[in-house]
Simulated scan of single mutants.
Amino acid sequence: MKIPTGTALLLALAVPAIAQEPPAADIAAGEKMYASSCARCHGRTGRGMASFPPVEGKDVDYLVGRLEQYREGENVGPNSALMKPVAAKLSDEDITNLSAFIAANFQ
Results as ranks from 00 to 15, higher is better:
Ala24Ile: 08
Ala88Thr: 00
Ala104Met: 07
Leu67Thr: 07
Asp59Gln: 05
Tyr70Trp: 09
Ala88His: 05
Tyr70Cys: 12
Gly30Met: 04
Phe52Asp: 12
Val64Pro: 12
Ala88Phe: 04
Ala24Glu: 12
Met49Ile: 14
Cys41Tyr: 01
Glu21Pro: 04
Ala19Glu: 14
Val76Ala: 15
Leu82Glu: 13
Pro85Leu: 02
Arg40Ser: 15
Asn105Gln: 08
Ser91Arg: 04
Lys58Ser: 08
Thr45Val: 11
Val76Glu: 14
Ala81Asn: 13
Asp92Ala: 12
Ala103Ser: 14
Ala12Val: 04
Ile27Met: 11
Pro16Lys: 06
Ala39His: 03
Ala28Val: 00
Ala35Met: 11
Ala24Met: 10
Pro54Val: 02
Arg71Pro: 05
Thr96Val: 05
Ala12Ile: 01
Ala8Glu: 07
Ala50Leu: 15
Cys41Asp: 07
Ala87Val: 02
Ala50Pro: 12
Lys32Ala: 15
Glu74Phe: 02
His42Asp: 03
Thr5Arg: 05
Ile95Gln: 04
Ala88Glu: 11
Lys32Glu: 15
Val55Lys: 00
Gly46Pro: 08
Gly46Gln: 06
Thr45Ile: 10
Thr7Val: 06
Arg66Met: 12
Gly48Thr: 04
Arg40Glu: 14
Thr7Asp: 07
Thr96Pro: 09
Ser80Thr: 04
Asp92Thr: 11
Gly6Glu: 09
Glu56Val: 04
Lys32Gly: 15
Leu10Cys: 11
Leu11Pro: 02
Glu74Gln: 14
Phe52Trp: 15
Leu63Ile: 07
Pro78Ile: 06
Gly43Glu: 02
Glu56Met: 09
Ser99Thr: 02
Gly6Tyr: 06
Leu82Gly: 14
Ala50Arg: 14
Leu98Lys: 10
Pro4Ala: 05
Ala29Leu: 01
Cys38Glu: 07
Phe101Tyr: 15
Glu21Gly: 13
Gly48Ala: 09
Gly46Glu: 00
Ser91Tyr: 03
Glu56Pro: 07
Val86Ser: 12
Met33Trp: 02
Pro85Phe: 00
Pro85Glu: 01
Ala19Gly: 10
Gln107Leu: 09
Ile3Trp: 03
Tyr62Val: 03
Gln69Cys: 10
Lys32His: 08
Gln107Tyr: 01
His42Leu: 09
Ala14Trp: 03
Thr5Gln: 07
Glu21Ser: 12
Lys32Asp: 15
Pro22Cys: 03
Val64Arg: 13
Glu68Met: 12
Val86Glu: 15
Leu11Gln: 03
Pro4His: 09
Ala103His: 06
Leu9Trp: 05
Pro16Phe: 09
Leu63Lys: 02
Leu9Val: 10
Leu82Lys: 13
Cys38Ala: 06
Val55His: 01
Pro78Thr: 08
Glu56Ser: 13
Ala87Trp: 01
Gln20Asp: 14
Met83Pro: 08
Met83Ser: 06
Gly48Lys: 05
Pro53Val: 01
Glu74Ile: 01
Gly43Ala: 06
Ala39Trp: 05
Tyr34Asp: 13
Gly57Met: 00
Ser99Tyr: 00
Asp92Cys: 08
Ala14Cys: 10
Ser91Leu: 02
Ala100Lys: 04
Asp61Pro: 08
Leu67Ala: 13
Gly57Ala: 00
His42Gln: 04
Gly65Lys: 02
Ser80Trp: 01
Ala28Asn: 12
Glu31Ala: 14
Asp26Ser: 04
Asp94Gly: 03
Pro85Thr: 03
Ser91Cys: 07
Pro23Gln: 09
Ala19Val: 06
Gly6Asp: 11
Ser36Asn: 13
Leu67Val: 03
Asn79Lys: 12
Ala87Leu: 02
